[in-house]
Simulated scan of single mutants.
Amino acid sequence: MAENGVRQWLVTDADAGQRLDNFLLRVMKGVPRSHIYKILRSGEVRVNKGRARPHYHIAVGDVLRLPPVRVAEPSDPAILPAHLRGQLESAVLFEDSHVLVLNKPSGLAVHGGSGLSWGIIEALRQLRPEARELELVHRLDRDTSGCLVLSKKRSALRALHEAMRQGQMEKQYLALTLGDWKDKTRSVRLALRKNTLQSGERMVRVDPVEGKPAHTRFTLLEHFPGAALLQADLDTGRTHQIRVHLQAIEHPVAGDEKYGDAAFNQRMRSLGLRRLFLHAVSIRFTHPRDQQPMHIQAPLPAELEGLLQQLRQESKS
């Protein structure tokens, strides 16, 4: 192991636009993700002499204080397993010199760490070694599948992040939920607060006092006995937003082990569901290079489509 001293890092155009946690993971190679978040929480990392949150996007001219850390000696990177390589290559929905959109598989985290050998970003960096600036534009929960956007150039990352801040990136999800849905459409505005347990697990709850504003619009697509297929449109992008909003209005998502209903989950398992029924079905944004409108769709995975077919059969009988 080697130890580095305190460093002052002036953010240039080459680094600007990245989330602070992602930047630290890249410049502090070998430091565990858990330690990165520890030094952020403790204030050992400073941005312009002040504390900053992991999701802060660093800007040109920012001065970062990077504390001394012990890092692992360089070693040969692990080789991406062949099955994962093939799975990700076949999941690419769109790719050019600036943007890559993936149909993210359920069960694969966007980042490695916490016992996970591979995340989406680490795997794709090995698959695309020429894309030296490959970064996640946004995130999806580990168990959620569907459209995930990555940038291949720093300029594209900045443009897409600005589009998200301006509400110009539209995301639609499909969710199978418990209960009889009464309205064709329903708008849910409930502030959410994120908590991290001692175990490191993230939990989110409705908190009208200290929570951040969150808005989800739901549209009924299909009725089933005791269940409903909904389309969810996000006006904000809080952690676990759809899942917690649906839990709060007593229509939790099928297969949700964290916020769901145990009896409903058991019933869905008996029909073959082995995952969370939440899928990012489409995304719209303006291409950062030529300003062309992009509308990319991710087909519903076979296991989710199969469950819907079984529920349709139940409805007829």
Rank of each mutant, 00 (worst) to 15 (best):
A280R: 08
T196Q: 14
L308G: 00
S145L: 02
D207M: 01
L176P: 00
P252S: 05
H138D: 01
S75D: 04
G43D: 12
A59V: 09
Q266Y: 09
H215K: 11
S199C: 05
L229H: 13
E222G: 07
L64Q: 04
A228I: 00
V71E: 12
V204C: 09
F264D: 01
L192C: 06
H55T: 13
S34W: 10
Q8G: 08
L230C: 02
F224P: 03
T219E: 00
K258D: 09
R202M: 09
S90A: 14
F285N: 00
M268T: 10
V110I: 05
R267D: 12
A214Y: 14
I121S: 05
S90C: 03
T185E: 08
D15A: 11
Q313F: 13
H295W: 07
F277D: 00
R158W: 04
F218S: 02
A16Q: 05
S114W: 10
G5W: 06
H240M: 12
A232Y: 05
E133S: 11
D256V: 09
L160T: 04
N265V: 13
R267F: 14
E95G: 07
I79M: 02
L10Y: 11
E162N: 05
R186A: 00
V11D: 08
P288H: 10
P105E: 09
V11I: 14
R202T: 12
K194R: 14
N22F: 00
F277H: 01
L174H: 11
H223G: 02
V31R: 10
A123N: 04
I79N: 06
K152A: 06
L93S: 09
L176Q: 05
L278M: 02
L157M: 07
E303M: 07
H35F: 09
G146A: 15
S145W: 00
E135T: 08
R7Q: 12
I242S: 02
V101P: 01
R238L: 15
S270F: 10
D207A: 02
A263T: 08
E305H: 08
H287M: 07
V110E: 03
A227M: 15
P293V: 13
E135Q: 04
R53C: 09
R238T: 14
G115F: 07
K29S: 11
E130R: 06
M268P: 05
